[in-house]
Simulated scan of single mutants.
Amino acid sequence: MSTHDLNEDGAVKHRHRQEGPQKHVIAFIFSIILTLIAFAAVAAGGVNTAFTVILLLVMAILQVLIQLGYWMHMKDKGHMIPILFMAGGFFVAGLAIIAALYWMWW
């Protein structure tokens, strides 16, 4: 450690690593690939409908995770409170959907 890595009071400086565009480009390409797979599954026509719906749901979940992680920076430190609030919102929304389906088919 050199002397320029220390603050005025002698404590070690913590440098913020800047994220390069490489990870964003990879995330963008992965998002495009997921979108193309979803379009191809729907455009194929001869694919089982249940399989297509499940595939689209999986692609949507992966897209959401990529969007939150790389574009909304939820993978970085200090974002636990927004993540907890979003998880709580997904939980409440899931309960509402389950309750609505149960109510309709009961």
Rank of each mutant, 00 (worst) to 15 (best):
T49V: 13
M104S: 13
A40W: 14
W105C: 05
H14F: 14
T35R: 04
E8N: 07
F90Y: 13
P21L: 15
T52Y: 01
L57N: 09
L34C: 04
G94C: 04
H24W: 14
D5E: 15
S2V: 07
F39L: 13
L36H: 07
F30Q: 08
H4I: 12
G88I: 03
L6H: 05
A100L: 10
Q67E: 14
A96M: 07
Y102V: 05
W106A: 13
Q18I: 10
I26V: 15
V64Y: 09
D5M: 12
I26R: 13
T49P: 00
G69C: 08
L95G: 11
F90D: 02
H4W: 10
L84R: 09
L56G: 00
A44C: 08
H14T: 11
V47F: 06
I98H: 05
A100N: 07
V12I: 15
A11V: 08
K77V: 08
H4K: 07
Y70T: 05
L57P: 00
A93K: 06
V53W: 09
G10R: 00
V64W: 07
W105I: 12
N7A: 11
I26N: 06
P21A: 15
M74R: 00
V25F: 08
K13C: 05
T3L: 11
D9A: 09
L34F: 04
M72A: 09
R15H: 15
G20H: 09
L84K: 08
G10P: 01
T52Q: 02
T52D: 01
L101H: 09
L55W: 02
D76I: 04
I37W: 01
W103T: 11
W71R: 03
A38V: 00
H24A: 15
G89C: 02
K13W: 05
Q63W: 03
L57G: 12
H4A: 13
W105F: 14
G46L: 06
M86Y: 10
F85W: 13
G45A: 03
F39N: 06
A11H: 08
W71N: 06
G69N: 02
A11L: 14
T3P: 03
I54Q: 03
R15L: 14
Q22R: 15
G46E: 05
P21D: 15
Q22G: 12
I97M: 05
L6M: 10
L68G: 00
Y102E: 14
N7D: 15
R17P: 06
G89L: 03
A38W: 02
F91P: 00
Q63V: 02
V42Y: 12
V64I: 15
H24I: 15
P21Y: 13
G88K: 04
L101F: 10
G94W: 06
V42T: 10
K13T: 03
W71M: 09
I98G: 03
T35Y: 11
D5A: 08
T49I: 11
S31D: 02
M72E: 05
A44Y: 12
M86V: 07
A100E: 11
M1K: 07
D5N: 12
G45I: 02
F30Y: 09
Q63E: 10
V58R: 01
H73T: 09
I83L: 14
G89D: 00
A93V: 09
F39Q: 10
G89S: 04
A11C: 09
H4T: 10
A50I: 07
E8I: 10
V64C: 07
A11N: 12
I81F: 14
